[in-house]
Design a binder for these strands. Structure first.
Lengths: 335, 335
DNA sequence: CCACGCAGGTCAATCGTTTGATCCGGATTG
DNA sequence: CAATCCGGATCAAACGATTGACCTGCGTGG
């Protein structure tokens, strides 16, 4: 069992042919016909010896790795789980594999070493900060790469979701229920997703003929959401509904609302972005906007495939988006 | 910018030395001294040309990839996020990278192609089912591999957590609070983690001089947890506390308890395994047992490093474990 | 003064494939 | 019958690094 690994040459020897023939059989090389009986001999030898091509050698020769990479900031965030799913599916469809890693600070720096022709065919960076040093490195690596769900002025290669539309959908829902004082619990102003959600909120309010409600910025975390909700509730004339920029904030916000003795949704309606499983386990189950996260991952890999390292990609993904109505939203109190 | 990639030979040419020298400088090869001024010339050339070694070629030659793989069944489960974190840290400490992928059904099968000497130095499989075909493939791949947190009779290479001890800790906590009718909401009988948690529960009850409470098996999901909790509550003489095999089940169980009009923890105490962030967002925040998940990932990589493909590993990880007391447990009602 | 050791390099085989160029013999064509 | 073609297979040069073996000149000990 500890025998040296079997190579192309071993197979060739057993089948009494040249290595080239074996290679062509293995790869179904169309430029050269192999006589059926020869092919059979080769296949038999392959099976007999349990030959498996050495991917490294192949990659070295062809400069193709059949492997894409996806780097994310936080595996604990279920948003990324969906993106990964889509990306893996797309890679599989291309006959490639997708590997995932953490993009946190030094993390991705370490990964840079595994880049280069043949080792990985392209990189997807999801929601990572704009470390300019990193971007510099990426350019030098001569590998195609795309940012997912994050647009920054410094980068002309991204695929983002239509956060504005998501916000409109959420606000539209609240307006439809009869709310008029609708607040926005925003994400961190540094995040472009937060900016777009805010822009969508504003636009939707304007279109509905309503004034912007109170805005409180949080940081996409439960603690931040709680604090921000606190400041919204401190208003003498508090909103009857709030559009929250993400589910994590919403968790904190809901907690705070309950602490203030208000009932959701009777006295406060809440809707948030991203339809995570988690949302349905909350009390009450949270109304959300479902965004095409899986599609985002899929699209990312598709674009990566065949992309040149210097090509630019700028796309707002127009995938299906849906409001998932649960128990956290209702018409406003009659008062 | 679209120039061909710079190789060792280019650097050698510019520095007027042999490729071998460049290689030795790059790798700090201790077997051969390089005169300081020569080294400087080489380093200068490297910087000047922006040389980066081709990892694929290196791997082909050395049969070392400096890359480990970790395959998990579900990225949406935060348990794995912690394992990944530990594994990445351990890999980084070894100067290697860790890549992660889905082990679902066909998924891992697809990945098998990327295996082999030089492409990946070892594989960690977390909580994947026991697909014997897969195990067969793994043996053939001549790559070291270890199962994490899953023991199966067919495999003599695993690292698992001490689920029995976790169960004892949880049950001990309930006993300490004064509970005597303590139920167990178990995981699927097919999962060995569930079996061990059950065993720990039984042992702890016995040691406390208490009879086994009612047992209801679920499937580690909220829906299953809710159903199982329903059957526990149907008992004419229901328990005052329940040890739940995982947090997902606990979510459903808590929901069901509330639906029955019972108050947590006043009328029903609940404690579950795995201290996920999520636990603290539940209402009420859930008491849990924190297990050394990060350590599990770390240990997995450490063991993988230097492991021969045929070596066996059988280890129960004795890492730190702690009961995180939150608001879901309290003394039983006086009645 | 010769042999030897050593510091500092060079040489070239090797890792396992892929793939264009080449070769060979039999069938086809004019 | 000679010139050509073509199916089927072989040859050998890459791909880019690593590394043991060898080489060269200088200083040293006997």
């Amino acid at each position: 069992m500890r025998t040296a690994r079997v190579t192309l040459a071993d197979v060739a020897a057993m089948a009494k042919v040249d290595r080239a023939v074996v290679s062509r059989v293995v790869n179904d090389d169309p430029t050269l016909n192999i006589r059926p009986e020869t092919r059979q001999r080769v296949l038999a030898a392959i099976k007999e010896l349990g030959y498996r091509p050495n991917v490294t050698a192949r990659s070295l020769r062809t400069a193709r790795a059949h492997m894409f990479g996806l780097f994310i900031p936080d595996f604990a965030n279920p948003v990324y789980a969906e993106i990964i799913k889509g990306a893996e599916a797309a890679a599989a469809a291309l006959g490639c594999v997708l590997v995932t890693g953490s993009a946190t600070g030094a993390g991705l720096g370490g990964y840079m070493d595994l880049l280069g022709p043949g080792r990985i065919d392209g990189l997807l960076l999801a929601g990572s900060g704009e470390d300019t040093g990193l971007i510099e490195q990426l350019h030098r690596a001569a590998v195609p790469w795309i940012m997912l769900n994050r647009r920054s002025p410094a980068v002309d290669r991204y695929v983002i979701l239509d956060d504005e539309r998501a916000a409109r959908l959420a606000v539209g829902h609240l307006v439809g229920l009869g709310h008029r004082r609708i607040a926005h619990l925003a994400g961190p102003s540094g995040a472009d997703t937060a900016q777009r959600r805010f822009a969508g909120y504003s636009a939707a309010m304007r279109e509905a003929g309503l004034p912007d409600g109170p805005i409180a910025a949080a940081d996409y975390t439960p603690a931040g959401g709680a604090a921000a909700m606190g400041s919204l509730l401190a208003d003498p004339h508090p909103p009857t509904a709030v559009f929250v920029a993400n589910v994590a904030s919403a968790i904190g916000a809901m907690e705070r609302v309950r602490e203030e003795g208000l009932e959701i949704p009777r006295q406060m309606s809440i809707v948030a972005v991203h339809d995570l499983d988690l949302a349905s386990y909350l009390a009450p189950p949270l109304t959300t906007v479902r965004m095409p996260l899986e599609e985002l991952g899929r699209r990312g890999v598709s674009l990566l495939n065949g992309l040149e390292p210097d090509d630019s990609v700028e796309e707002i993904l127009a995938g299906p988006m849906a409001l998932i109505t649960r128990a956290s939203t209702a018409p406003p109190p009659e008062d």
